[in-house]
Amino acid sequence: MDIEKKLINVKYKTDNVPHLVLNQEICKVCEDKVCLTICPANVYKQALSGENTDNDAKKSDTIECISVEYENCLECGACRVACPYGAIDWKYPAAGCGVAYKFS
């Protein structure tokens, strides 16, 4: 299912500082990675895919394990509650920033 298509209609005012920050050290050893599926806006993605070149793979120690498209966040809080290791430093975006519903 195409989540991008759903998100097109959502209005945001993007904060230039990410409001969601992961402790990637924990993510690296996390088995279930529930954040990858639970998020209604698909904010979290596996950063290293099979398509990465050798070069990328070598850098994998320094590369983050989960990428965070915080710009798409709907501020629901589900990831914060679902992450079993409390690895998400979950804040609200700066005042006036983030999602802005018009018809909900």
Binding site: M1, I3, K6, V34, T37, I38, N42, A78, A82, F103
Partner: peptide, 21 residues
């Protein structure tokens, strides 16, 4: 307009690895 939605147990979403959308 109409609203159409679902309320889903967060526990089940997590356990079954289902995507809410």
């Amino acid at each position: 307009s109409i609203s159409i939605g679902l309320g889903v147990s967060l526990e089940d979403l997590a356990n079954y690895k289902m995507r809410p959308y």
